[in-house]
Simulated scan of single mutants.
Amino acid sequence: MCESVSHPEPCALVVDDDGLIRMDAMDILQDAGFRTFEASDGDKAMTLLAREHAVIVLLFTDVQMPGTRNGFAVARETASRWPHIAIVVASGHVRPEPGEMPEVARFIGKPFTSDMVHDHLRDILPDGRKPAPLRNREQAGSAP
C-alpha cells in the first residue's frame, strides 16, 4: 500500500467496484513496479485523490461503479485538478463517446492482460514517472 512518505516506487490508484478485478489490476500494477491505493467507487477515489494526489502518478479506473461519479467523471476531474496524474480507463461494457474522457486518458477494454496494461503504461507515462520494472522491460525490448 502507498503511504504519504517519500519512496522510490511511484503510486497508482485502482478504482473498481469488483473486488476481484480491483485485486487483479493492483497485482498487474505492482508487477510493473507501482505501490497501490485502492477505492471501490468514484466518490471514494476522489476523496483519496484529494488527500494523496502528490504521490499518485497513475489513475486506473473502471467506468461503471456505484456512487455519484462514474469512471469517466473521475478521469475528467482528475485531469482537471491534477494534470500530473496519468489516466487509464477500463471497461468491458462501455466504450467512451467523444468528449467523455479527457484527451490525456487512455481507454482499454476488459478483460485486460498484464502485457496490455504494461504496454499502455510505457506509452503514456513519462520516463521520470515510470517505475523501474517498466523502464527495464522497455530497454530489454529495444535491445538488439
Rank of each mutant, 00 (worst) to 15 (best):
D18P: 09
G19K: 09
I21C: 13
M23R: 09
D24Q: 15
A25D: 07
M26E: 14
I28T: 13
D31N: 10
G33D: 03
T36L: 11
T36I: 11
A39N: 11
G42V: 04
G42H: 10
G42L: 09
A45W: 00
A45H: 01
A50C: 04
R51W: 14
L58N: 03
L59G: 01
F60W: 06
F60D: 01
N70I: 03
N70L: 04
G71I: 03
V74H: 03
A75L: 04
A75F: 06
E77G: 06
T78M: 05
T78W: 01
A79V: 05
W82Y: 08
H84F: 08
A86I: 03
V88A: 06
V89E: 11
A90M: 15
H93M: 13
H93L: 14
V94N: 01
G99D: 04
G99V: 02
V104K: 15
A105V: 08
A105S: 10
R106S: 15
R106G: 12
F107N: 01
F107S: 02
F107C: 00
I108G: 05
K110C: 08
K110W: 04
P111I: 04
P111S: 07
S114N: 13
S114H: 12
D115V: 12
D115N: 04
V117Y: 00
V117T: 07
D119C: 11
D119V: 15
L121A: 05
